[in-house]
Design a protein around this nucleic acid. Structure first.
Lengths: 199, 199, 199, 199
DNA sequence: GTCTAAACGAGACGGTACGTCAAGTCTTGGC
DNA sequence: GCCAAGACTTGACGTACCGTCTCGTTTAGAC
């Protein structure tokens, strides 16, 4: 944001002003954290960012687009690599829950999912985001496959689907404070289902 | 709804008018089906039901409460009982997806989940609804346990959690048209994790 | 306006709240006086009246309708009755100019005319207002006709048209401070044109 | 405008580009004709002229200044010279009304008057324009005076004021389709008031 | 021939106001 | 005391312009 006493950002010519974009994204995150999804409005973001509403609409066609970009700006969650599939998955879920709990990411992602239920573009954006990259779980499972931990013929996509779904629902139902034991139990049932004989 | 051609229900005196309540619930469902969650407003429901807004607010303190009652009015999904755990679970998920797809239940439940992300009462209602009764999956698993299909020490709650989560996410991301094979695969991974030795 | 410390007017049920209407009209007049036509906006009126914009739009479909009602609320200008046509007309114009100068009526009427140049409804409202009642000038001339001051065959409508036009243009061009002599001269030319022989 | 297919005029160096000025004035007139005063905005003119907004603001400091220049570009109305005062005045008004009706001049002048009600510079410009030259009516009356048609001591300024006012009001209230008889009647009343004895 | 200054189109900027929609609260008057 | 009805304040929606600003380009005229 501008320092000192300059109260308003000026245009920097006929192109996007990164200061404005940054201030808007920061404001969006702050509003989401402080007022929650129900208090999240373009107006509120504009007020907080000291930006005009049209400036927001110029760059983000919908609330969803803004949310998604805010979410993408977040620091990513760590993917553990312990050499053992179960530890990797449990650790990943623990990291993810912690990340969602302790940063604004959780709020943002919840909002995004909620928005996707009523807004077509949010839905599309979310789908594209979800499918556009190999999920962390898929990466973890593939690594385990190379180590020989995974039974032949196991498809990692449904596994990732199960694990992601589990995470989503815990986020959506305020159950991110799950202890390690519970996570390990659920993950374990899936793992035993896909483990290579002898593992 | 009112008989004859009288377009407006009259008061029936100092007690709740069941016609009104019924008309409101029907209108809520109709609005949800026709306009989706984004078009679902108390205002729209009142218009459609030819009811006053205060009448709605008197009996349902929030949008969430109305949604929840609409959801509860829906016909429940069938729980298969084939004598084999895998068939039961796959069949149940297929029934559920079909039910969500082909009736208004899917829309309603999606809306309820979305609403719960911004409305505290919806969140509580949803939690209470989810936890207040043994889930269908728990029932199915428990039945299998009695048949000896389930390994000792297996906790049915995390299993139900995994299965429900899988269903929720498919609902929330418009993937209710999953074919049997995909469902069977995902369910299978969980099942092998909990199967009794020899099953 | 509400007395004491009650900051917000409440609804008084399913009918128009005269307090609100009054507050809006007063606010409209005040805004017009203080900020002029260029500063006159529905937003400003709503802010000043502590009313919601929809409340204004509910009762006045356009800026023009609001302006017109504000104008109609103004105290009317006195029509002299001296028994002599020239004195009546000169006196009337002097009264009118004074009224326009010293109350907010002048500003309001100017605004109304300006609004009518871009807004169809304002144009219609103004026309309806202008044609809907015999103008003051017509009344004055008709009275003179009964006294025998007016030549036979004289039509009072074009006379009123000339006099009204003269008044309008002086309003629109900030020349309401015309001295009696100038007014008398202009009126005199018209009068001599319509005087009965011997008058 | 630029030749060939080059869609954008370039700068021609450190001086005003007459092509741009011309295109802007033409665009302003076109916008006014097509969208009326309510649709007349600097933005719209710039779009239509394929010019940048700053180019317009550089040369015309306000909407009023642009309007005024557009008005001045218009072909002037013909002043008849029949040798008889009444015919001259009636003819002039007929020409003026026709000119206002059938060219864009009427729209432009209306807009200018409207603008002058909220914009100080427009007001000043209009006053300066109106007072800065002898009006057509004054010219006509002075010519008649030299022919001996006008009574001694008659001041042509108030006469012109009456006639101009009549014209203005008919413009502002959409009554430019007045037939000759009506005009002649109104003009006649004034004329008889100023005629030399025996005329 | 180089350099400076100004004008050009384009379009982003912070704002204000628009007119609409829905939220949740309130009162009336009928039953 | 419940009902339909509908007015109330509040506040967000997405859009149109406002007048200002900076950009990168172009050209004339001063050196």
């Amino acid at each position: 944001m501008a320092e000192d006493a300059d109260p308003a950002r000026r245009s920097i010519g006929a192109r996007r002003n990164p200061d404005s974009a940054g201030a808007i994204l920061e404001a969006a995150e702050a509003v989401l954290v402080e007022a929650g999804y129900s208090g999240f409005s373009i107006e509120a973001v504009a007020r907080r960012a000291r930006a005009g509403k049209p400036t927001i609409y110029r760059w983000w066609p919908s609330k969803a687009a803004l949310l998604l970009e805010v979410y993408k700006r977040q620091k990513r969650v760590d993917i553990p690599d312990t050499g053992r599939l179960e530890e990797d998955l449990v650790g990943f879920l623990q990291n993810l829950f912690k990340h969602w709990r302790e940063t604004s990411s959780g709020s943002i992602f919840r909002s995004l999912i909620a928005e996707a239920q009523s807004d077509e573009t949010a839905s599309a954006a979310l789908a594209e985001y979800a499918l556009g990259r190999p999920s962390h779980t898929v990466q973890i499972v593939e690594r385990a496959r190379q180590r020989g931990e995974v039974a032949e013929g196991v498809d990692s996509a449904p596994v990732a689907d199960l694990i992601s779904s589990y995470a989503w629902r815990h986020l959506l139902t305020n159950r991110l404070d799950q202890d390690e034991q519970s996570i390990r139990k659920a993950v374990g049932y899936v793992l035993r289902g896909i483990a290579a004989p002898g593992n």
